[in-house]
Design a protein around this nucleic acid. Structure first.
Lengths: 238, 238
DNA sequence: GACTTTATTATGTGCATACATAATGACATG
DNA sequence: CATGTCATTATGTATGCACATAATAAAGTC
């Protein structure tokens, strides 16, 4: 054990980072302000400029600081509020709420995709795609409908997969590496089929997400539409 | 002009980063694989270990690599799909779609908040909050209803603000520094009032977001419910 | 065999130094 | 006056070195 040598010993550039973050939160430096140079901060904290540099870069990476080669480092005026949320596997999402998960297979066909799906996926002309419908349940209550199209020319393994016991959602996550895509949220009125599957009697507003997933060659692997039971809320911390 | 000296001269640790990212994308290293030690990579790239370290840290920060003190660096198996989207100011959101923005003030009152709002905001007991309703339009068409509660004990300046010409959304972003909060998406059936304000005739499913914003002391500044016109989609790239 | 100690290994961090690069202003020149 | 040159400044990056730390393997002890 060394005696406390006044400096910040156990620490790291992360100490500097959190200290600077504290000053930002407490408005010690106001939005738009120019803050001291790395050298000055290094002197104040009693560390090398490299260390301060590392810390400030990390903060700038998060969008709270703006740095320019000569004009120094300044506090970003309106830090674009960024929400970053993770797209969970449905089973994990349900189980993380401490509900019991169950799964009901609905249908699986090879079909010529309708225009809307073709526009989203851009499959080779004339091919049939794998079309799977399934229901995920939480505590035996319908939770979300999974309505999925898979391009088996891109993912031939999927043609042999059995989705009666494993959801396409889970199967894909576990078997297919993917690299990008996009995501959309919307609200829609329940169709007759959706009302029946979700076991609801009155017409309701349903929260809906559509997701498209691509492989490393930028070919669309799959498109899925998730239609949640009434009352669903997607919550995100900032 | 120097002749090309074979090494990567203009570069940086970012070169290493992109190279490693390329290898990950091309599955040169498979998910779960252990990749060479920093020292080995440094040798291969002809740079110092520090440089490789910086690069790998950056990638690990993005969740694609997992590093442990002795066991080395390995490719994360199921990189949690993270979508990160920025919460735009409504005006900017509309104008970024190349639509003309306009604003219609609806009402502004000091009211005792209902239970639901009190639960969200936790204001001092018995105080009145500022309750503002407004409509944002795109190309003269109703786009979204802003229904907002502001705690004027936390933000006294808001009591004197005039929301007839400036939306609370814009005013707050420009005037109040904030530090955190949360966000929820859902779908709801249009109420009579919403149908009237949004100028829709039939009952529709409306995409709805609720946002809570806190200051640096973790007090809730404002809660807002945004109800979008039918057909709205929130799109996010990955 | 169960446990503790010790060595080894790969990453984590700090530092001093050197040089690169972008942005800015001062100055000079046509 | 417009333009080009140059010095200055603050950040960006690379490197070699030292040491800290976590995790594992190997060796030793009861």
């Amino acid at each position: 054990m060394r005696s406390n040598t006044s400096r910040l010993p156990t620490n790291s550039w992360q100490s500097v980072e959190t200290e600077v973050l504290n000053r930002l939160r407490s408005n010690y430096w106001m939005p738009g302000d120019l803050l001291p140079t790395e050298a000055e901060l290094a002197a104040e904290f009693g560390c090398a400029r490299t260390t301060v540099n590392r810390a400030l870069q990390a903060i700038a990476d998060d969008g709270l600081l703006e740095r320019k080669r000569k004009g120094g480092t300044r506090v970003v005026v309106h830090p674009t509020r960024k929400a970053t949320f993770s797209i969970p596997v449905i089973r994990q999402e349900i189980e993380s709420k401490e509900l019991s998960y169950s799964y009901r297979f609905l249908s699986q066909k090879r079909e010529h995709p309708p225009k809307t799906i073709r526009a989203l996926m851009n499959p080779a002309p004339g091919v049939r795609l794998l079309h799977v419908k399934a229901l995920h349940l939480a505590n035996e209550q319908p939770y979300v409908i999974e309505n999925r199209w898979i391009d088996t020319t891109i993912v031939p393994e999927a043609a042999d997969a059995n989705f009666r016991n494993t959801s396409p959602n889970q199967w894909l996550v576990e078997n297919i590496p993917f690299n990008g895509g996009d995501l959309a949220f919307s609200a829609s009125i329940a169709s007759d089929e959706e009302m029946s599957v979700l076991e609801i009697k009155e017409s309701s507003a349903l929260f809906t997400t559509e997701r498209r997933t691509r492989d490393s060659g930028n070919s669309t692997i799959t498109v899925v539409r998730l239609v949640y039971a009434p009352g669903y809320r997607m919550e995100i911390g900032l």
